[in-house]
Computed example of a mutant assay.
Amino acid sequence: MHMKIILRWMVLLPLASLVVSGCGVPVSGPPAEVTEILAAYPELEGHEYSIEQVKRMVDGDTLETDSGHKVRLIGVNTPETVKPNSPIETYGKEASAFSKKRLTGKTVVLFEDTGNTDRYGRWLRYLFVQGDPRMFNEELVREGYANTMTIPPNVMYSARFLKAEREARTNHKGLWAEAGANASESMKEANQAESSACGGPVIKGNINAEGEQIYHVAEGRYYKQTKAERLFCTESEAKAAGFRKSKS
């Protein structure tokens, strides 16, 4: 029990080298699996992390750990399972089943971005299964089990997730399979509007064919038909990210 407490204290510290106070003796660095993750995702260097065990999956993108923390995966959104007899529910079950099979009972490494928790008190994290340097958030998107949902300030991998989603669309995986195209689009619209941590209608950021970054507010003419590539809670956030307001 004592060793477990020491490990948890150590892994919650930043990844910078540590020195025992007054001794000048270096403390051993991060575990091998963390070093492997940092080699694949160097942007995470210096970000706090913890090692946890997954107790159960709440749904495809939310889990609970043995230590009692609820964790929401950053940057992704799996389909809801609360609409009986709809195609959306089917995809939600598939995403949930995929996450349960991959994560339940597993030891995982959880990295922070900038924001620690959402308004529900859930940890916001990038997740890696111990021994596998691939980010699970990204895997969900690339395999077609989730769409991107970027909410500042946790935007470190927004471009990477968007690229993974485009690959899933191109390869007609999961949500983007021909038979489920209509369902996946309606799912994306519903969840982007309802599942964000903004506490109100989100602002949709879209990049058009000319590369212009344009954002749309809820009362805008093209809001409903816009397929968001970035989400914002306020217009100030959208402008700070380089987007301009739609003229209609």
Rank of each mutant, 00 (worst) to 15 (best):
G75H: 04
V71R: 01
L73G: 06
G75E: 03
K83D: 15
G75V: 01
T78W: 02
D66E: 14
G68H: 01
E94F: 10
L73T: 04
L73D: 07
T90K: 12
P79W: 07
V82D: 14
H69I: 03
L73N: 07
D66I: 13
N77V: 02
S86I: 10
V82S: 13
D66N: 13
I74D: 04
L63V: 04
P87T: 07
K83I: 14
G75A: 06
G68L: 01
G92R: 09
V76D: 03
T78E: 03
E64S: 10
S86P: 11
G92I: 11
T81D: 14
S67V: 03
T78C: 11
E94N: 13
K70I: 06
I74T: 02
L63F: 11
Y91P: 05
V76F: 02
K70Q: 08
T78L: 04
P87E: 09
I88N: 13
R72G: 09
H69E: 12
T90V: 12
E94A: 09
P79F: 06
I88Y: 12
N85C: 14
P84I: 08
E64M: 05
E94I: 05
H69M: 07
E89K: 13
G75L: 03
L73C: 03
T65S: 03
K70F: 01
K93F: 13
P87M: 04
I74P: 03
E64Q: 10
T90G: 13
L63H: 05
I88A: 11
R72N: 09
V76P: 02
A95V: 05
V71K: 00
R72E: 06
K83V: 12
G75P: 02
K93G: 14
L73F: 04
G92H: 09
E80H: 06
G68Q: 01
T81H: 13
E64G: 04
G68K: 00
N77F: 02
K70N: 07
P84N: 14
E80Q: 10
D66K: 12
Y91K: 10
T78P: 05
S67P: 07
G75I: 04
K70S: 06
P79R: 06
P84L: 14
T65K: 02
K93Q: 12
N77A: 01
G92Q: 08
T90M: 11
K83R: 15
E94V: 12
T81K: 15
V76C: 03
D66V: 10
I88M: 13
K93R: 10
G75K: 05
P84A: 10
E64T: 08
L73H: 02
P87Y: 07
K93I: 09
L63Q: 08
P87A: 05
Y91W: 11
T65W: 00
V71F: 01
G68Y: 01
I88R: 15
I88C: 12
K83G: 12
N77C: 05
H69L: 09
P87Q: 04
V76G: 00
N77P: 04
Y91I: 13
E89Q: 13
T81R: 15
E89C: 15
N77I: 01
T81F: 13
V76W: 00
T90L: 12
E64V: 07
